[in-house]
Write a protein that binds this DNA or RNA. Structure first.
Lengths: 190, 190
DNA sequence: CCGATACATATCGAGTTGATAGGTTTCTAT
DNA sequence: ATAGAAACCTATCAACTCGATATGTATCGG
């Protein structure tokens, strides 16, 4: 087995019970900067985990509230989790449309280039703020593991921001003074 | 449209003709550290690009060699490429099983933790070496875009390596002196 | 009291991954 | 010489993931 959404769900549940909705929240706050998962992955994952008895599920019906299913990790779930964590050599992949676009920076008008970089910088600053909140607020994220991972994210983001601000000028060197190669494409398209 | 494998293939072809096999090579060397694609994505992408006339395809049959299909970008392909590059706000995602595992470091035996970290460190050093080769060897990767992207990768990798070496000791703080929580799981499983 | 947001589950098409299959040519070491 | 490894080349498939969407109730602010 590899470290897929199923495994991470199991891991999160090892820290406390929760519904699918809860898990999504955890994914967004704590895991968002290095491992994403949407409902389309989480619900099937929970269903499979329940099927194989790695988690138990009990439906909670509070009156006047939407029904929810609270999942809880089982003993065999904890064993499976440790086994999986120990028996894989985990990957680390970046999929960056951002860098892909910048690779072809020469084809893009300077204004668009600026917009794209500024947007990405904003995103990174948002994540940095989130990580800072986590550092102070979240009780669940204070162990050595969570701290290490948070620090990793912080370090990489700062390095990236620094690099971008230092080198973005060089990107425009390609078409300094002359117009974008092809006629500027209308902003409304697609 | 978003920046998918199709778009990046189009971009690569804008730098010169090539077969599916060639493209895979380019993906591995130049794009590998921030955007991966396998045959399972590349061949369908090329087929679709050919269908919509963004690239042309001619079959080359040299005697005594496996047949190959050389793809070439068309004028409408170049337009579409620029339009796509300019009209998206590109994403940047990390999917790190590595960090996911380290988040749960307390559940893992110190020996396994060491193995995992060393393996990842090795991978990162490999990529650094690759980037260094690209810097000196590859004629295609000398423009401002390629240089920026390469430098980005280098910077982030160095920052990550540095962070790991500085903080890996703290990860083991959780179970210093006492045994792993659950009985060590046999290495052979799964 | 209306609209936005939070809570909650779930599905679907499109895209991606990683492994696998199937075949030829060229290089390399014994 | 020749066996075997590695490079060259196209292609597919099941499993997994993504992002959008559907469908509702409850709550809270203006």
């Amino acid at each position: 087995m590899s470290i897929d959404v199923k495994t991470v769900c199991l891991g999160i549940l090892s820290l406390g019970d929760g519904s699918g909705y809860d898990l999504k929240k955890r994914f967004e706050s704590t895991f968002g900067h290095f491992f994403q998962a949407g409902y389309g992955s989480i619900y099937p994952a929970l269903a499979q985990l329940a099927e194989t008895d790695l988690v138990s599920c009990c439906e909670v019906l509070e009156e006047g509230k939407p029904a929810k299913k609270i999942y809880r990790i089982t003993e065999s779930g904890r064993h499976e989790l440790v086994k999986t964590l120990e028996s894989t050599t985990p990957t680390h992949k970046i999929r960056s449309e951002f860098l892909a676009v910048l690779y072809f920076a020469e084809l893009i008008g300077p204004a668009q280039l600026d917009r794209i970089i500024n947007h990405r910088v904003g995103e990174m600053q948002d994540v940095l703020r989130l990580l800072d909140e986590l550092k102070h607020d979240s009780a669940a994220d204070q162990g050595p593991g969570p701290r290490f991972v948070r620090g990793f994210g912080e370090t990489i983001l700062r390095a990236a921001l620094d690099y971008i601000e230092t080198h973005r000028a060089e990107l425009c060197a390609g078409h300094e003074g002359h117009e974008p190669k092809l006629q500027p494409v209308s902003r409304t398209a697609t």
